[in-house]
Design a binder for these strands. Structure first.
Lengths: 188, 188
DNA sequence: TGTACATCAGTGAACGCGCGTTCACTGATGTAC
DNA sequence: TGTACATCAGTGAACGCGCGTTCACTGATGTAC
């Protein structure tokens, strides 16, 4: 039956939230419309009242994941100051806890590999989210202002690569070695 | 009809080579058995005379991709010496040419994201290949011997992350900025 | 070395299954009066 | 404010499609004699 506008808006958010988490856990194509609608306590038939296609939802889910991720970093910068916040961010990023809970972690580490082969609308969500994340990290960077952005990108590349590799190898010892080596940063 | 042992061995290699390239281009699950058998000039029905399952082939294809990749680096080390070879390796890695030809590039950058959700046998192939790549890079590293392995891992993480991010955003300008920033290495 | 025959690599149709998407239907919501 | 009714969010069956895997069959290969 017809739902109230409020209920519909709530359902839409539930679907995006379920997709944001489930896609980070399983990958985009391995997340079926039926599964995620069930996770949002709905049936799959109603999906197309909210989204034009699965791709359109994927784009929104990824944008939402980046927004959540960047918001966490921003909150910490306000609380701890830029230097300590970045240190915290990297420290949390390169942990076994992050490795094993991709649904709550960095969308680039969880889905960046998929992104290369996704529809343009999905890649645009990656681009927008990545810009926001780089901007935040660059603003929190110390060192010569002209170099802050490049340093932020390099830092992000290192931790994304470390988590992708650690997850791919599936071996606790090799994975931990990769995390540990990436945690040590060479003296600037 | 029955094929000679030589023909069968050739076909097996053709299948692994086709899978190694196609999986890096399309992802593991998006590469269908029928498509890759066709790429190897065979029909899909014969697949199971060679491999127990698609997962078993994926593991072999990834191991082969790492072997090719590591062999290229090793050849360069012998030709140019460790320092110049690593510089060359990183230079080639962080190029638009590498971005756009994943089928011939680093298997970790192309498939690492998929690896997190694959069967154990596939993750073992990632682990084996990653160990070989780290070993080669570490041996070619300059600086304090105790730090060489960690430095190699950090370097690898940075370039893998840079390529994953560049491919995911799909935008030439942002992608190029990520490559360029990752190319500049902070003074040691 | 020659021959009879068992083996088995490759073929192509078929299997069950899950996918994204569509659709007729239901009944509470929102609106026009 | 109350009422009649058009709208449409959600349901669940159905659609065509491609997937990994299986199987009966074919005929060249490899082997036993």
């Amino acid at each position: 039956m017809r739902m109230s506008r409020d209920a519909m808006a709530r359902h839409r958010k539930d679907i995006v939230a379920a997709a944001s988490r489930m896609m980070r856990e399983r990958g985009i194509s391995a997340t079926s419309v039926a599964d995620l609608m069930q996770a949002a306590n709905l049936t799959h038939g109603g999906f197309y009242r909210h989204f034009e296609s699965k791709d359109a939802l994927a784009a929104e889910a990824i944008a939402a994941a980046f927004d959540d991720h960047v918001r966490g970093l921003g909150t910490n910068i306000e609380k701890l100051g830029p230097e300590a916040a970045v240190e915290d961010y990297v420290g949390d990023y390169l942990t076994r806890r992050h490795l094993t809970r991709p649904g709550f972690g960095c969308p680039m580490a969880a889905l960046g590999g998929d992104g290369a082969r996704e529809a343009k609308v999905v890649q645009e969500a990656f681009a927008g989210g990545t810009r926001k994340l780089i901007d935040r990290l660059a603003a929190a960077q110390t060192g010569a202002p002209a170099e802050r952005r490049a340093a932020a990108i390099r830092l992000l590349a290192t931790i994304v690569g470390a988590v992708v590799m650690s997850r791919a190898v599936g071996e606790a010892d090799l994975g931990d070695e990769i995390l540990a080596a990436s945690r040590e940063r060479p003296a600037p």
